[in-house]
Write a protein that binds this DNA or RNA. Structure first.
Length: 856
RNA sequence: GCCCGCGUGGUGGAAUGGUAGACACAGGAGACUUAAAAUCUCCAGACCGAAAGGUCGUACCGGUUCGAGUCCGGUCGCGGGUACCA
């Protein structure tokens, strides 16, 4: 008897699928369509175990849908622009383009042996000229529709390298290469007007029934709709043009507890005052040294600077408040100015305490008092409170009621107006980098900023500069310093002009690739007939780390593409169902380098002893447990040795077993061998059945029931993304088949069914078994088995008997035994008799088919 | 800081508010073998007990319920996101 030999069977069946074009997406026939998509990978160099997990999940769905009679689209591509390619070029020479395409070749070479049912003919990379050229066309259409505009925005600036830094490149406030303290700098940049769609993007979340609730919550919080009051404080002796300071507040009911006005360091008034106040200028400069991330702003110590300027309270002109410039106020949100109410806000309380400002309450608990000087009183807005300094509404009301009443009162008295604001900011897409899609606009001295003509697209990235491949050892954007690339004719007046040298954020690339897959070679961004057939994506699968940005940007882009005629109306929400798989995590091992910066070590370099890690030279490493696998942290696990040792089916089986798909898993390699043993066991069991000849026995029926139960359970698991549950059932079914003494016919049926149920997970082995057991054609094309409901029902059930919620015995009764009969049997049960000790039960709960509880 | 998750045996994990620990890994005992590998059978949360059986037990504290891993409130720890990592 032959042994399970994945090395020989896997290439054989991959060739068979290739010959039969099994996974080529086709619009033919009248089958329903199914589009399954996994978030495409960044070509970091090698696939890692997280990729294997992600694509195996998608492949299970794709193969299952094929077997249940669908036209399936299951494509693959690469999110190929981005910083790592430039970083690699800086670190070790070479060119981002060569680095990227080499990586793609390697990764495709690693993915193909895994036997994914992908339509490889549709593959593309976002750095392909064909792709980014179409993206430029989309940009021009968006521009024409007013979905893109220019404004100033802050970037991280490295004053030594004279270059813009990504947030990731700022470490403890310093540039990652130069080590110099980073500054904020203002640049004119392109923005997508995503904020125009805030309300729509928020409201439409409710229609996404098959999205995880947590993702919808995260997006809703991110968009952040709030209702508040916008009004102005009038200033006293302020510079010209600043007789009013507009503020926005979501808690107007605390207006009578105001103790100061705060403005952002980037507020026009702050900038004006700075001119004549060196101390303030120094404070503002200090604020601008802070990074641009929200996290840094929030975590930084709250600091303010008293401008000396004062404003009048809108309800009492004799009441004057000081104006502070404060480092925690964002110019981007609201009006860039607030009033502080220390009595009912922790941050304002800290601020007031620090600068000796008054702390006044506007409401107290309904019962009792709260020491407002010691800590702020911040109840939920839905809680009733007793107002001590009331603007409008009842004395005792909830915060919500008070807010509404105050807004109405203010509007009626001309103090301000109720407005709805969103936290969501416009999407800045300009990047001062080489390896991205060039923004197709031209700067002309005469005509200003002019869109490039569509017939001049694609605007290609230059490979060479001055006859040599671009040198990335020099900091800064190579497009900026390229001797000729910028030169062009103005599309409007024809005079010499210069190209924009900024490229697009790589999130743009990934915001429409799913649409491009429906017609990847089309001469326009999409082909409407293909998009109409294949869209939407029926099942999208990817990491939870993309819950907000990528998915929100894609939702915006889909709407923009409808507006510009590139997608049909039905695509506003392009992903019908979303599944967020957990990440594969692995410890990070780091030491500190001579320059004080962290040095990351590969798992292979680290020896673990007593929970501590050491390098070969004995240096102890710091272990950061369970972190997201990241190339820059060197904690990526390479699955290729598992594939080489045990084969693709083992790797696929292994990544699906044991862990629920949505949960993070800490990677350990110990289970791979066990998975391999199990597959070999299945092969052995099937081979024995194929070689046997046993007449029908009285155990045939039991095995048949087991088989139908397995069909039911495994199918349920696949349908609900419970792949680990499906696999547990497959283990149990394999054990049942192994132990069964049924005849050959029943066993053959069971084994063929087992092969089918396993086929989405272990497709090569399943094809082999199918052939061995006399199945017709490819198992990939065989119709998915259907469970016979009649075979699933049991005749009797075993009920656990609880006494006061603790299990004290069990009772086996016919399935349909009436409740009162069950009660009689329970009361006669030994354990119950003992517990009652002659008395009567206080209560008797019978949950039919599940449990019995006696309360004594 | 803020938003969103997660926390169950030695390990990965299972469990529509209804027998906690399915299925598997590692471990132990045995069979087969000259031996090993492979394979097969069985055991296995902790504690007490010879056993029958009992007590405890799902990060921690409290609540709702006949009944809580599951629902509610709070605490701690870990992870993701935080708008230029992708």
């Amino acid at each position: 008897m032959s042994r399970y030999d994945p090395a020989s069977i896997e290439p054989k069946w991959q060739a068979a699928w290739e010959d039969a074009q099994t996974f080529k997406a086709s619009r033919e026939g009248d089958k329903p369509k199914y589009y399954v998509l996994e978030m495409f990978p960044y070509p970091s160099g090698r696939i890692h175990i997280g990729h294997v997990r992600n694509y195996t999940m998608g492949d299970v769905i794709a193969r299952y849908k094929l077997a249940t009679g669908h036209n399936v689209l299951h494509p693959m591509g690469f999110d190929a622009f981005g910083m790592p390619a430039e970083n690699a070029a800086m670190a070790s020479g070479g060119h981002p383009k060569d680095w990227t395409y080499n990586n793609i070749d390697t990764m495709v070479g690693q993915m193909k042996p895994l036997g994914f049912g992908l339509d490889w003919s549709r593959m593309f990379a976002t750095c392909d000229v064909e792709y980014y050229g179409q993206q430029q066309a989309l940009f021009l259409d968006f521009l024409e529709k007013g979905l893109v505009y220019r404004k100033n925005a802050m970037v991280n600036w490295d004053p030594v390298d004279m270059t813009v830094l990504a947030n990731e490149q700022v470490i403890d406030g310093c540039g990652w290469r130069s080590g110099a303290p980073v500054e904020r700098k203002e640049l004119t940049q392109w923005f997508f007007k995503i904020s125009d769609m805030s309300g729509e993007l928020l409201d439409a979340l409710d229609t996404l029934e098959n999205w995880p609730a947590k993702v919808k919550t995260m997006q809703a919080n991110w968009i952040g709709r709030s209702r508040g009051l916008q009004f102005a404080f009038s200033t006293i002796d302020a510079p010209d043009g600043f007789d009013r300071i507009e503020v926005y507040t979501t808690r107007p009911d605390t207006l009578m507890g105001a103790s100061f006005v705060g403005i952002s360091p980037d507020h026009p008034l702050a900038k004006q005052l700075e001119k004549d106040n060196a101390e303030l200028a120094a404070f503002a400069a200090e604020c601008r040294k802070m990074g641009t991330t929200e996290e840094e702003m929030e975590k930084a110590e709250k600091k303010g600077f008293d401008t000396g300027l004062r404003v009048r309270h809108p309800f009492d002109t004799a009441w004057e408040l000081p104006v502070y410039v404060a480092n925690f106020i964002l110019m981007d949100y609201g009006t860039g100015a607030i009033f502080g109410c220390p009595g009912h806000d922790q941050r304002d309380h800290d601020f007031a305490t620090k600068y000796g400002l008054p702390i006044v309450d506007t409401f107290m608990p309904v019962e009792g008092e709260h020491d407002i000087q010691a800590e702020p009183f911040v109840p939920a807005k839905t809680e009733k409170v007793r107002f001590t300094r009331l603007v409008a509404g009842a004395e005792i009301q909830t915060g919500e009621e008070a807010i509404d009443a105050t807004i109405d009162f203010c509007e009626a008295n001309g103090v301000g107006q109720g407005v709805t604001k969103f936290r969501l900011r416009d999407w800045g897409l300009s990047r001062q980098r080489y390896w991205g899609c060039p923004i197709p606009v031209v700067h002309c001295d005469t005509c200003g900023v002019v869109p490039e003509k569509k017939e001049n697209l694609p605007i290609q990235l230059p490979y060479d500069e001055a006859g040599k491949p671009i040198d990335f050892s020099i900091p800064g954007n190579p497009l900026d310093r390229h001797p000729t690339w910028r030169d062009c004719a103005c599309p409007s007046c024809g005079k010499p002009a210069q190209r924009e040298t900024d490229t697009m954020d790589t999130f743009v690339d990934s915001s429409w690739y799913f649409a491009r897959f429906t017609a990847p070679r089309a001469g326009t961004p999409t082909d409407m007939a293909d998009a109409d057939y294949w869209m939407n994506v029926d099942q999208y699968i990817g990491g939870i780390e993309h819950a907000i940005l990528h998915l929100l940007y894609s939702r915006f882009f889909a709407r923009g593409m409808i507006e510009t005629g590139h997608l049909p109306q039905k695509c506003a929400e392009p992903f019908n169902a979303l599944f967020t798989q957990g990440m594969v995590t692995h410890a990070i091992y780091k030491t500190t380098g001579a320059d004080g910066r962290p040095v990351y070590h590969y798992p292979e370099e680290v020896e673990l002893r007593d929970g501590k890690g050491f390098l070969k030279d004995g240096t102890e490493v710091t272990i950061v447990p369970s972190a997201k696998m990241s190339k820059s942290k060197n904690n990526v696990v390479d699955p290729m040795h598992i594939i080489a040792t045990y084969g693709a089916d083992t790797a696929r089986w292994f990544v699906l077993s044991d862990s629920p798909p949505e949960r993070d898993v800490e990677w350990t390699a110990s289970g791979a061998e066990a998975a391999s043993k199990h597959l070999a066991r299945v092969f052995r069991i099937a081979s024995e059945i194929a070689a046997s000849d046993v007449a029908p026995t009285k155990e045939d029926d039991a095995l048949l029931r087991e088989t139908h139960k397995a069909i039911h359970d495994v199918t349920m698991g696949v349908e609900s993304f419970g792949f680990n549950a499906s696999i547990a059932k497959l283990y149990a079914f394999t054990n049942a088949l192994h132990k069964s003494r049924a005849g050959t016919e029943a066993k053959t049926f069971a084994a063929k069914t087992l092969a089918q149920l396993m086929s989405p997970m272990t497709p090569h082995l399943s094809e082999e078994l199918w052939q061995l057991l006399g199945g017709e054609g490819l198992i990939a094309n065989a119709p998915w088995p259907v469970a016979d409901e009649a075979m699933l029902v049991e005749d009797s059930v075993t009920l656990p008997i609880q006494v006061n919620g603790k299990r004290r015995g069990e009772l086996t009764v016919p399935k349909d035994l009436p409740k009162y009969e069950v009660e009689k049997l329970v009361l006669a049960h030994e354990a119950v008799v003992k517990a009652l000790d002659g008395g009567q039960p206080k209560k008797l709960i019978v949950v039919p088919g599940r449990i019995v509880n006696v309360v004594v």
